[in-house]
Design a protein around this nucleic acid. Structure first.
Length: 742
DNA sequence: CGATCAGTCTTTTTT
DNA sequence: AGACTGATCG
């Protein structure tokens, strides 16, 4: 028997050896899931399975990287050839090769949530809808996202009477229209949002048999980590890819499913059993991570959930310390008590800071801890929801790169066109959008033909200079390597000067971030085993990185992060903060059993991160929206049997007061103007525009029938003034127009 | 067009 | 309390 197999227990080893066919590995917290997955892959390669034919999908980029390293230590360089990554990054890679089939440029941009919301805001503005009323950008976005994650496209949505009716009755009748317009706008910008990466991959496999064939035959073995957190599209995609070989191995723990708000669906596990009736089920129930107290307390917690697969974790580890409950007066007090305990652990028990984590429900809670830690000189690393690449100054420079690579990218253009200030304000940009809409072309097309349009000469000059600069950047990107091109753009755009002029502490921080971005590009171009070192490849990679992917957990610092980002990690000591009603469980999630059970699974995840010591903290008062609130201890604390718990003085007797309920201010409903939806006929064939003359009756691909009132200009600048029956008078640049003579 | 100021709204969680 | 928006003025 191979040496690495000897290190496994019987359940683990069987799960490794049975790599053919469909497998469901139900792996409890701390049961050696990653070890099984990596050993299984190594074992496959040892048994002459071609590394190129293995696809392994993980939850984070970091997990993929670590898994690759671990496989490599067993089987060597072959591990480099395995396709390993997150759903999003692997599919983005596939789409980059195949995007042309669905009408996208291969250098398509990936829109992050901010970009998506900004697109929605722009649409709401054009449609004169109130972004604070019924149509909140974030609400629209999450609804669109939910649709995409459940494979409901605009046509499906419109045909679904239930959805349409519920929109009507809730006053959101125009949602479907916004959904379509949002998609159209992204498409026109050559951009895909996170959900499109999944949906478009699905479409690709579904609509192009040759593509499906190609990937089915390329990936003979598919492995999925954290399967409980996959959503419908993700499952549909892997089902398609694995359909011919049926070698699909999924690993997961239903008790750790914490992403249903993102469309994750525990039902995938049930569907998997139905779709692959031949599957073998393996259960990993021995916990190697935590003490008896922690394992049994976590079992107390999770047994309150009704919906779960039967399994029982056990451990051979020591009984360990009791779980300590810390009661604090305020959030600052909570942070101080935590900091104090951390210093004690560090001094008296010689526990490294890097072995300690503070976990909380919401990112906003980090602040108090940061302050306390700074005051007491405790080094910490903050894993936030905003990654390095989402900081404003970094995104600004990235936007230059994005736009140079994909000049259809409107969101990028919006960021850079007047930054640094060039005297191109909102009004001008709004004009450009109107011109682009009228001409059914991109804003970049308009800028390049700006002389044909009615706009002040000052603006024309500035825009022409801008276009000249962008074109010089485009040449740089073609001729130089990613780093040199990036350096040139950061200088010549004026961004560097803008940053270095700002001598405030924040300004210096921003300047450093931009320098760090350039260093990251440098490192990217010098990296081994990355074949595509273009700036475009760099952009794609960083748009899918999370903050956790960027952290190095090796330096000796205490880790601060949300429970969500702690998934998959473990620490010798864990503090779970803010265990109060309306915070953990969240106020938003106590209305239904399903939501509450998800909060409980989240708490379960938090507790099971701890190896040796666990502290559960709560405060009796907390500042929220500038108001002091009284807090009740979390109901979850009562779910742990008292024999596993040790209270600090008076911890259990929290003051119980009903929190004040903030009454919402009555908002006046905006008057909605009527606007005709625009239907663009994709199959429309225009006549030769040079034959057009004043007085002709014509048909336009988007605006329908009209009459030419006037034509002026020559060459590319030739424009027609047209009166449309449905849209009134418009000035249209003939270069882009699709017009038929009637 | 851009800077400043007042008023509004915010909190889940993330690829 | 702090970020963000929109209105007003230079």
């Amino acid at each position: 028997m191979k040496n690495y197999l000897k290190e496994l227990n019987d359940q683990q080893r069987i799960a490794v050896e049975n790599y053919q066919g469909a497998s469901l590995i139900i792996a409890g917290a701390g049961s050696g899931k990653t070890r099984v997955l990596t050993t299984r892959i190594a074992y496959m390669i040892d048994n002459h399975i071609d590394a190129f034919s293995i696809l392994a999908l993980t939850f984070t980029n970091k997990a993929a990287q670590e898994m690759r390293e671990r496989v490599e230590t067993i089987v060597g360089v072959d591990a480099k050839n395995i396709w390993m990554g997150t759903f999003h990054s692997v599919f983005a890679r596939i789409l980059r090769a195949e995007a042309f089939r669905i009408g996208y440029p291969n250098n398509f941009t990936i829109y992050d949530t901010d970009d998506s919301k900004s697109v929605i805001k722009a649409i709401l503005k054009e449609e004169n809808l109130d972004p604070k009323g019924t149509y909140k950008p974030s609400a629209i976005h999450s609804r669109i996202s939910a649709c995409k994650n459940s494979l409901i496209k605009p046509d499906d949505y419109e045909n679904n009477i239930e959805l349409m009716d519920s929109d009507k009755s809730s006053g959101k009748a125009r949602f479907i229209e916004l959904y379509r317009k949002y998609n159209a706008r992204c498409f026109r910008s050559g951009a895909m949002d996170f959900d499109d990466l999944l949906l478009n991959t699905y479409d690709l496999l579904n609509n192009f048999p040759d593509v499906l064939y190609k990937y089915q035959h390329r990936f003979n073995y598919v492995l999925i980590d954290e399967f409980q957190d996959t959503n419908v599209v993700q499952y549909m995609i892997i089902k398609k890819i694995a359909a011919s070989t049926r070698n699909l191995c999924v690993v997961g723990d239903d008790s750790q499913s914490i992403y249903s708000f993102r469309g994750a669906n525990i039902r995938n596990i049930l569907d998997f059993e139905k779709d692959f009736p031949e599957l073998k089920v393996f259960k990993l129930e021995q916990n190697y991570r935590s003490t008896v107290n922690i394992v049994e307390a976590s079992d107390n917690i999770i047994s309150n959930n009704k919906y779960r697969l039967p399994k029982k974790l056990w451990t051979n580890n020591a009984a360990g310390n009791k779980i300590k409950i810390l009661k604090a007066d305020t959030e600052a007090d909570e942070a101080n008590i935590t900091a104090f305990n951390i210093l004690n652990l560090h001094k008296n028990e010689n526990i490294a800071f890097s072995d300690i984590a503070v976990l909380y429900r919401t990112n906003a809670q980090s602040r108090a801890f940061e302050e306390a830690f700074r005051r007491l000189g405790i080094d910490y690393r903050l894993v936030g929801s905003i990654s390095f690449y989402q900081r404003k100054e970094v995104k600004d420079l990235l936007a230059y790169f994005r736009f140079v690579i994909n000049p259809a990218d409107e969101e990028a253009l919006k960021r850079i066109i007047n930054y640094p200030a060039r005297g191109i304000g909102d009004t001008t940009f709004a004009h450009l959008i109107v011109f682009a809409n009228d001409n059914q072309c991109t804003i970049w097309d308009i800028i390049n033909n700006i002389n044909a349009f009615e706009i002040s000469n000052r603006i024309k000059t500035v825009l022409t200079e801008f276009a000249f600069m962008i074109k010089s950047f485009q040449i740089a990107v073609k001729q130089k390597d990613a780093f040199e091109a990036a350096k040139q753009m950061s200088k010549e755009s004026g961004l560097i000067r803008l940053m270095s002029d700002d001598k405030s502490p924040e300004g210096i921080g921003r300047f450093e971030n931009v320098q760090n971005l350039l260093s990251a590009i440098k490192a990217f171009t010098e990296r081994e085993n990355t074949e595509d070192k273009s700036l475009a490849a760099f952009l794609q990679e960083v748009s899918l990185l999370t903050d956790a992917d960027n952290q190095d957990f090796k330096t000796d610092k205490v880790t601060l992060m949300t429970v969500h980002s702690a998934k998959g990690l473990e620490f010798r000591v864990v503090f779970v903060a803010g265990l109060e009603e309306n915070l953990f469980p969240s106020m938003m999630s106590v209305d239904t059993r399903e939501e509450l059970e998800e909060e409980r699974r989240l708490f379960y995840v938090a507790v099971t991160r701890a190896m040796e010591k666990l502290y559960l903290c709560y405060a009796t008062t907390r500042f929220q929206w500038g108001n002091l609130r009284y807090c009740e201890p979390s109901r979850f604390l009562d779910e742990i049997e008292s024999k596993y718990i040790e209270y600090n003085a008076g911890a259990k007797q929290g003051k119980i007061k009903t929190p004040e309920i903030k009454t919402s201010t009555v908002q006046r409903k905006p008057v909605l103007p009527v606007r005709k939806p625009l239907f663009v006929n994709p199959d429309f064939k225009g006549d030769d525009v040079s034959s057009l003359q004043t007085g002709m009756n014509i048909e336009h691909n988007a605006f329908g029938n009209g009459k030419i009132l006037q034509i002026d200009g020559v060459g590319d600048s030739r424009m027609a003034l047209i009166y449309f029956d449905k849209f009134g008078q418009k000035k249209i640049l003939l270069k882009f127009a699709k017009i038929k003579i009637v």
